[in-house]
Design a protein around this nucleic acid. Structure first.
Length: 116
DNA sequence: ACGATGACTATGG
DNA sequence: CCCATAGCCATCG
């Protein structure tokens, strides 16, 4: 596959995310060489969402939420999956009444955001 | 081959 | 505070 360099670069970065950590689209995009192309990061994952190859569930919004409607299996599944990896989650009551997509749960980016 | 759209993010009104 | 716009590259019609 590896349709294009950018695409492959995104996979390379996402696959490098350590277990128990998450990265934002902008973060992956920046590491991929396109700090202004966070949208294409999701596009790359969508076009290649290969379970077991690219942990797209470790890629979250800048707010720490996921893509509502495009989650691999559902927001509840994603929350449970990240929790199992050791990712810390914040309930909507403690985070913000804002809608976070994943049942209102957001990842504790302050503690679990991956840093290159 | 061209045009439009898309898993985002930041800024402006 | 909420809506609209701008920027990026790739994929689809």
């Amino acid at each position: 596959m590896a349709s294009t360099g950018f695409n492959a670069r995104v996979y390379d970065v996402v696959k490098r995310i350590p277990r128990g950590c998450v990265a934002t689209y902008g973060q992956v995009a920046a590491l991929a060489g396109a700090p202004r192309s966070a949208r294409f990061v999701g596009f790359a994952l969508h076009a290649n969402q290969e379970p077991g190859v690219v942990p797209c569930h470790r890629v979250v919004f800048r707010d720490g939420s996921l893509a509502p409607g495009f989650a691999f299996g559902g927001p509840d599944e994603q929350r449970r999956l990240l929790e199992e990896e050791g990712v810390r989650f914040i309930p909507p009551a403690e985070a913000d009444k804002d809608n976070a997509g994943a049942s209102g749960w957001k990842v504790d980016l302050a503690r679990c955001q991956w840093r290159a």
